[in-house]
């Protein structure tokens, strides 16, 4: 038991990784990416048909919720895991992305690829606008204000004419084909690959940030905001950066989601989604990319998988959250130990 308690898969993995030379690392990365790209085919054989969940095909589940949740959880991880800001309204940015895709896609001639940067920009802008007044506040107030913002976006979507009210907007266009690859309801693989590309870009971005100035600033803010400020870190500016970058990722996920499901409605953007994404981050291991990905995969797939106990599915989900958090409070794959040791005492 003692060995199990002190065993940290994240550290073990980092040890192996750091022992490798460049060519070994490159091979490994390509191998993993290759396997991930081939994932949509995994459900095609009769022996693997168990991957299909009772209500949705395996490929559909792979795009939404699994891929989408990983993308959003990585975005939220920048906010919660890296800089320690508790955001309970992350769904707002997802909704802003989805609604920009729906409104611009049905009323203008822009296609989804052109809308994607606009949606990200709008999400980012709202992140800045929300962040400017609220990021000065203490953590718990930030939590309630972001929660409120999520609800405001949803309620506005219900009550404003141009967003279609409670019925939402239908007929959101699919993205046009790229290099002969089609994206529609019969070609879900395409959507999965877009999401994978976006996830890889986000991972790349986070890793670049982490080892550079913004990453160090976020880490300092997370450990102790006052000390960071005394050390000359422009706290508010870096908080807003982290907040708006997270928002942009959420917005991007929203655009792709709207175009994949071809329909948006306020019901899709409830507080529960924010909670679920936050659970993915904390459950997997805050601040650690691989933990977050693992957490999001499990939490996205599990409720679909156990749909056969349909009525009690959310109940089991809640129980799983309580039990795992009690057994492994730092998540399944916690952040590196050396980061944790330096953080100890300061964050309490």
């Amino acid at each position: 038991m003692a060995i199990l308690k002190n065993f940290n898969l994240r550290d073990k993995g980092a040890e192996i990784w750091e022992g490798w030379n460049r060519s070994k690392r490159t091979t490994f990365v390509f191998a993993v990416v290759g396997v991930v790209i081939l994932l949509p085919f995994a459900g095609d054989f009769s022996i693997t048909s168990f991957l299909n969940t009772p209500t949705a095909s395996y490929q559909a589940v792979l795009v939404y919720p699994v891929g989408m949740y990983i993308l959003m959880a990585l975005g939220l991880n920048i906010v919660v895991g890296k800089s320690g800001l508790l955001d309970l309204g992350y769904v707002a940015f997802f909704a802003i992305g989805a609604y920009s895709a729906a409104i611009l896609g049905t009323r203008t001639n822009l296609n989804i690829w052109e809308i994607l940067p606009i949606g990200m920009g709008l999400a980012m802008l709202s992140g800045v606008l929300l962040g400017l007044p609220t990021l000065r506040l203490r953590g718990d107030y930030l939590a309630i204000v972001t929660l409120g913002f999520g609800e405001i976006v949803r309620i506005s979507a219900i009550n404003v004419q141009s967003t279609g009210g409670p019925n939402g907007i239908g007929g959101v266009p699919n993205p046009p084909a790229v290099l002969g690859m089609k994206f529609d309801i019969n070609n879900l693989k395409g959507f999965f690959w877009i999401v994978v590309v976006m996830i890889l870009l986000v991972i790349w971005m986070i890793r670049r940030f982490t080892s550079r100035r913004p990453g160090r600033a976020w880490e300092a803010i997370r450990q102790d905001e006052d000390v960071a400020m005394l050390m000359g870190v422009p706290v508010l500016r870096y908080k807003i950066w982290s907040f708006s970058i997270g928002a942009a990722v959420g917005g991007a996920a929203g655009v792709i989601f709207a175009s994949k499901s071809m329909f948006v409605a306020p019901d899709m953007f409830t507080f529960n989604v924010s909670v679920l994404i936050l659970s993915c981050v904390v459950f997997g291991g805050m601040g650690n990319i691989w933990g977050v990905i693992l957490g999001a995969t499990i939490l996205a797939y599990l409720p679909e998988r156990i749909r056969f106990i349909s009525t009690a599915r959310q109940l089991v989900f809640g129980l799983a959250l309580v039990i795992i958090m009690n057994v492994r409070p730092d998540g399944l794959l916690p952040r590196k130990k050396r980061e944790k040791i330096t953080a100890k005492g300061a964050t309490k």
């Binding site: 919660v80 508790l86 909670v275 936050l278 659970s279 904390v282 459950f283 805050m286 009690a312 959310q314 109940l315 989900f317 809640g318 129980l319 799983a320 959250l321 309580v322 958090m325 009690n326 409070p329 730092d330 998540g331 964050t347």
Partner: peptide
Amino acid sequence: TNRLASLISAIGTSIVLSE
């Protein structure tokens, strides 16, 4: 442990109760 872990476990309990 960190405060977020408690928050998630409270959210879990809340889901269990309402469900």
